[in-house]
Computed example of a mutant assay.
Amino acid sequence: MSGSGLIAALTSVSTREQAEALAHHLVEQGLAACVQLQAIESVYRWQGVVQQEPEWRLLIKSTTTRWAELQAAVLAQHPYELPALVAWPLPEGHAAFQDWVREQTAS
């Protein structure tokens, strides 16, 4: 991942409490500058059966330099057997916001 050095990562969990706990952990550890929580509905196939469940989406703002640690932290605390966790680079953005994200996630 390149560009501004910023990433947006995405995962989801079953409950608001799980989402809040994970979000707080990531921000408190300096692995994310901000995590947005949103109630969603997911349709997916699991073990051959189509499921539909409410979930909480976490949109995580961080940096490429913290990605490995962020990924490890999410996977260590995630309640799912197979959590979705993806990230994509943010090639452009408001300069002051980019600086803030970098400051919040500086190790």
Rank of each mutant, 00 (worst) to 15 (best):
Q51T: 00
P79I: 07
Q104T: 08
T65G: 11
G30F: 09
Q18M: 10
A96C: 05
Q38Y: 02
L22H: 05
A72K: 12
E55R: 03
C34M: 14
V74Q: 02
I7N: 09
S42P: 04
L37E: 08
T105A: 02
E17Y: 03
G3H: 08
V27I: 10
L58A: 05
S42T: 09
I40N: 06
T65M: 04
H94Y: 15
P54S: 10
Q104S: 15
V27A: 05
Q38L: 13
G93W: 07
A9W: 12
A87D: 03
S12D: 08
V13N: 02
G93R: 07
H25W: 09
L10C: 12
V101S: 02
A87W: 10
G48H: 11
L82H: 11
C34L: 08
T64E: 14
S42A: 09
Q51I: 01
Q51A: 02
W46R: 03
E41G: 11
R45K: 02
R45F: 02
R102I: 14
Q18G: 13
Q36I: 03
G3L: 10
L59F: 00
Q47D: 06
D99K: 10
A72N: 06
A39Y: 15
P79V: 11
E20W: 10
P54I: 02
H24P: 08
G93P: 03
A84T: 10
A21P: 10
P79Y: 09
I40F: 00
A23M: 04
